[in-house]
């Protein structure tokens, strides 16, 4: 359940920003989660709601911004879309793929009052 640890990291980032900027309440935050990252977005949302319940971000809306997975196919010598690790190249059906994008997990922005 590493989503709980990640949720705590998110809360830490939000709390640091709230202190730095003097925010009274965070009402929404946007998390960019890559399709090939090792986190389940809904589990992360659930965990964040739990860890944030007594914080400046209690009840905040969590918006997940999906980032598409991308890879380089060595056979095709071309960039391709990759929805999941272990999927074949959509062009040649091979597996000589190196992940090039879609692994990020970032706090993009937040909305505060």
């Amino acid at each position: 359940m590493h989503e709980m640890a990640l949720a705590e990291e998110v809360l830490q980032i939000v709390q640091d920003a709230a202190r730095r900027e003097g925010l009274r309440r965070v009402v929404a935050l946007w998390l960019e989660i890559g399709q090939l990252s090792c986190v389940e977005p809904e589990a992360l949302r659930f965990c964040f709601e739990a860890v944030a319940c007594d914080s400046v971000a209690a009840g905040a809306r969590v918006e997940i911004v999906a980032a598409a997975g991308a890879a380089w196919c060595n056979e095709c010598a071309a960039p391709v879309a990759l929805a999941a690790l272990g999927d074949p190249c959509p062009l040649c059906g091979g597996y000589r793929l190196r992940v090039t994008g879609g692994t990020q997990m970032r706090v993009q922005q937040l909305e505060a009052v």
């Binding site: 990291e9 980032i13 997990m105 970032r106 706090v107 993009q108 922005q109 937040l110 505060a112």
Partner: peptide, 17 residues
């Protein structure tokens, strides 16, 4: 009015680790 404010963060969740 409760003025809403958007704040760019752009920080990796695992940055501290």
């Amino acid at each position: 009015l409760a003025p809403a404010r958007m704040l760019r963060i752009e920080q990796d969740i695992l940055a501290k680790n």
